[in-house]
């Protein structure tokens, strides 16, 4: 290739192919899911279902999917609230560390995020048995909080570390109490990140499979457990309905995240 400079606006040909691939790979799977959730039957080799029905969706409210979606929503909201409340002061405190302790702390906090849920759950299951909360929603909630707190603490550690402490120290020297500093200085400055942390912690719990299976022992029927059972049983229509129920609140949580980020410029657009 010759080393001359092409016009800056020229679009390489491969990007058109990439755009087509991107569009297909993003939208096609979601379209298949929607069609499958409405299909009465979908025989080989038809590209579209034979016929459509809303039966799968109509029974959501009264059936197992509705119940498990409610369980999951409560679990995810409780996880998000508890984790963010716990992670705020932790992240604030970790942000005061300097290297090398900063890296040690970050690695420690990253552990529960990175620990594969199935391996984490193996140990936690014994712990919840001893605490007497195995097989209960409380046990599952506690287990969900483990990775969620780690994630939120990392997030707050980063944002508090980046914002410095000058205004906080100014408030203190003017006589503000610890609570007043939190309420009037710290919390307003990280409002967007709190929304982000709530959304992410909600999603960590909402999509959790392995921890729920291991700690809940099949007794806690969260939505992903119900959907996994439907997929494995080959009940494609109900599985697709359940899968879409899992996707929609997740997309809404992400929108909340983007909205929060736009308001505070906490995230790159």
């Amino acid at each position: 290739m010759r080393a001359n400079i092409p016009p800056r606006r020229a679009r390489p040909a491969w990007t058109w192919a990439a755009l087509v691939a991107l569009t297909l790979s993003t939208l096609l799977p979601l379209a298949v899911l929607v069609l499958q959730s409405l299909a009465t039957s979908w025989r080989w080799p038809l590209l579209l279902p034979d016929d459509y029905t809303a039966a799968g969706w109509r029974t959501v409210a009264s059936g197992a999917l509705g119940r498990s979606a409610l369980t999951s929503a409560l679990l995810a909201m409780a996880t998000a609230l508890a984790s963010v409340l716990a992670a705020l002061p932790i992240g604030r405190s970790l942000a005061t560390l300097r290297a090398p302790w900063r890296h040690v702390a970050a690695a420690l906090v990253f552990l529960p995020v990175a620990a594969p849920p199935i391996a984490l759950g193996a140990g936690l299951q014994v712990a919840t048995l001893q605490l007497g909360v195995a097989g209960s929603a409380v046990g599952v909630w506690l287990a969900h909080c483990v990775p969620a707190i780690g994630y939120a603490a990392l997030l707050f550690m980063g944002v508090f570390g980046a914002r410095g402490r000058d205004d906080e120290e100014a408030a203190r020297s003017l006589g503000a109490s610890g609570l007043q500093v939190w309420w009037h200085v710290l919390l307003p400055s990280v409002r967007g990140v709190i929304v982000e942390a709530l959304a992410i912690c909600f999603l960590i719990s909402w999509a959790q499979v392995a921890l729920t299976l291991l700690i809940g022992g099949g007794a806690v029927r969260a939505l992903p457990i119900e959907v996994l059972a439907l997929v494995r049983a080959g009940q494609d229509r109900d599985a697709a309905v359940g899968a879409l129920l899992l996707v929609v609140p997740a997309m809404l949580a992400l929108s909340a995240l983007r909205f929060g980020a736009r308001r505070t410029d906490a995230l790159p657009a």
Partner: peptide, 10 residues
Amino acid sequence: PVPHLVAAAT
């Protein structure tokens, strides 16, 4: 935000 489970089912 699509969960792993949904990615696998799809």
